[in-house]
């Protein structure tokens, strides 16, 4: 049975009358790369800020490796490395000085650890320059380096790829993947970029208006019963008329000579059967690969 590294129980945050996070229950297991998704204002950053102690929960609990974060804050936070919001450092200092300063703040960081994390993010030369000369990509790398200083078992990353160019994003995702794989670090990551999350995360949760909509293995989230089938036919208008109103058709749209039909997987054969019997030549019938984006958009519409 997987060990739970991070657990939120009925986590709620209200700012006056506005409820930013509403009774959120999440479980992140050891070794997970957990994607935390939601539109702007859904409550992702507030949740992350509560986990790292920047925002106080109105109610509910947070546990890090079984340690109650409210009662034993220092023990809980010592197990977290984080990057919440944009990476911020002392601009007049070099990257290295920033890291050594933050190592001193955290305490108990061995002497050579600063060099190790600099090497881990490949910033040996850049770390000798002042932070004010850094590009956004370098800042992100430095932010990861500071998060790794204390060898935390859990990394909390809030939209870490924002502002990076495609090459930078690729490198960054590669870095995260290697951290999860090689160092067995559990990663809790929020992002707007659903393809990225789909690519690197094994589990995900989607929230909206502070409430959890779905949570689970990415594969099982995408393998729901309903699927959309791309159908290329000789006469799209006739095909539509044949399928429209059938009880097993859950969605229907026409794109030129193509029909997009949403149906249960076990009833997909009926699409072909109905069209052929109705005299419509069927050139193609293929299930569309469901992406996290599709799932996200569906959930947002509901």
């Amino acid at each position: 049975m997987a060990t739970t590294v991070l657990k939120t129980i009925d986590l709620t945050k209200r700012f006056g009358r506005f409820t930013a996070v509403d009774r959120l229950c999440l479980e992140v297991n050891e070794g997970d790369v957990f994607g935390f998704l939601g539109p702007n204002g859904a409550g992702k950053t507030t949740t992350m800020r509560m986990i790292v102690g920047l925002v106080r929960p109105t109610s509910g609990r947070i546990e890090v490796n079984g340690v109650d974060a409210r009662r034993h804050f220092l023990d809980a936070i010592a197990q977290i490395g984080s990057l919440v919001d944009i990476p911020a450092f002392y601009r007049h200092l070099t990257g290295r000085s920033n890291l050594s300063l933050l190592a001193q703040v955290a305490g108990g960081v061995p002497k050579g650890r600063v060099d190790e994390v600099i090497e881990a993010v490949s910033m040996q030369k850049a770390c000798l320059k002042k932070v004010k000369t850094y590009s956004h990509g370098m800042l992100q790398r430095l932010a990861i380096a500071q998060a790794l200083l204390t060898r935390p078992p859990l990394l909390i990353l809030d939209e870490p790829t924002t502002g990076l160019d495609p090459e930078g994003k690729l490198e960054f995702l590669h870095l995260l993947r290697s951290l999860a794989r090689d160092q067995r670090i559990t990663i809790f990551i929020s992002s707007h970029l659903l393809e990225e999350v789909e690519e690197i995360c094994n589990r995900a949760a989607i929230i909206k208006d502070g409430r959890l909509l779905v949570c689970g293995e990415v594969r099982s989230l995408l393998a729901e019963e309903l699927r959309t089938y791309r159908t290329v036919v000789s006469d799209a208008t006739k095909a539509r008329a044949l399928l429209d109103g059938r009880p097993w058709v859950h969605g229907l749209s026409v794109e030129g000579q193509r029909l997009l039909v949403t149906a249960r997987q076990d009833e997909a054969a009926q699409i072909a059967d109905t069209l052929v019997k109705g005299g419509v030549a069927l050139e193609e019938l293929s299930p569309q690969a469901k992406s996290l984006r599709t799932l996200f958009m569906e959930l947002m519409k509901e």
């Binding site: 919001d85 944009i86 990476p87 911020a88 933050l102 703040v105 955290a106 305490g107």
Partner: peptide, 14 residues
């Protein structure tokens, strides 16, 4: 202003 408060306070310090 520099948001370094986030970086510092998300560490094991009260």
């Amino acid at each position: 202003t520099g948001r370094t408060l986030n970086t510092i306070l998300a560490r094991p310090v009260r």
